[in-house]
Simulated assay, not measured.
Amino acid sequence: MSTLMRVERTLVIGHIFSMAFGLAGLLLVLPNPDFIASLPPIGKTAFAWSMAGGGVMYMLLGMAAVTVYAYRTLGVWHWLGFMLPALAISLSSELLGTSTGFPFGHYRYLTGLGYKIAGLVPFTIPLSWFYLGFSAYLIARAGLNTKISQNWLKIVASIVLGAIFLTAWDFVLDPAMSQTTMPFWVWDQPGAFFGMPYQNFAGWFGTGAVFMTVATLIWKVKPFNFPQHNLGLPLAIYVSNFAFAMIMSLAAGIYIPVLLGLMVGLIPVLVLYRLADTPTEADIPENLAKVSFNNG
């Protein structure tokens, strides 16, 4: 195993552990003030750190894990060709949304997610757009590579599905994170979907589709061998973040968004990952392919 692969593994394990630690604080410790008061000094310190920096830490680790993976598997051009548009476009959408209400609706961020850019958007938010969007798009495109031969159709379908998978994660995350005991953002424009306006999902889909399209155009400048089977890290990132959101929603008694997220997000992602991970005739050495397919 290469050094970069070891770093990836360490970062993604840290990312998942940080989310689990944050869940324990939000769901088990925070609702029980008597338990907090009974903690020893080191326990109170750990809880205070979890509430103040846990959200920042898990997003930083997720960003770092996907960054190392993208650099190792795609190279500098294609890593930056996705990351920079994702960061810039998602931040622009968030700044526009928190100041004007477009494209997501009127909302504002509270504390707990780090320093706010322009006093509006925590710097960690664009990071999550990048690492979730990258993971969703990569799995969608790798899975469709095995089923669609026309290149233009494959690219368009990958962008659409990648943006849908990204939005499906928000189906599950947003209701809980805005209605938990310690909310991280609030809606000044309450909507019909568990306190959120439907406009929010159009904004999510549109923002994701835009930066995925820009990244795809940048990638076309320098053609490369698309990673078809080495998708364990993107899958781990998507599944672990979906699980975090699902546990938060279920703990808050919010079920319908979880079902929607499963149907249009997690289950299709798992199917496409399986398709991408299934060897095709093109993946089998020529001599072995002749033997295998002739005997079949």
Rank of each mutant, 00 (worst) to 15 (best):
A118W: 12
Y69L: 09
R72Y: 05
S99V: 02
K116H: 14
A52D: 15
V121P: 00
V121D: 02
L120T: 05
F82G: 07
L120K: 14
T73I: 14
S50W: 08
A118R: 13
L96S: 15
L80A: 15
I89E: 01
G55L: 13
T111M: 10
V66N: 06
L120S: 10
T111N: 15
V68P: 04
F82L: 12
W77I: 03
W49H: 12
Y107C: 03
F47I: 02
L84N: 05
G119D: 04
F47M: 03
T98C: 09
T98I: 06
H106I: 14
S93N: 02
G43N: 05
S93Y: 01
M51P: 05
T111W: 10
G62H: 03
P85I: 00
G54D: 07
F123Y: 13
S90A: 15
A88G: 03
K44L: 09
A52M: 10
G119E: 05
V68A: 05
M83T: 09
R72V: 04
A64D: 04
V56N: 12
S99E: 07
G54P: 01
A52C: 11
G43T: 06
F102H: 11
L74K: 04
S92I: 09
A48V: 11
Y115V: 09
L113C: 09
G119F: 03
G114A: 04
Y69A: 07
G75W: 09
M57G: 15
V76T: 13
P41T: 10
L87T: 02
A52V: 08
A52E: 15
M59P: 06
G101F: 09
K116P: 06
A65Y: 01
V66I: 15
L96D: 07
A48F: 11
L95N: 01
T100R: 06
L84Y: 08
Y69M: 06
G112V: 01
H106K: 14
L96R: 00
R108I: 08
A46H: 04
A48K: 10
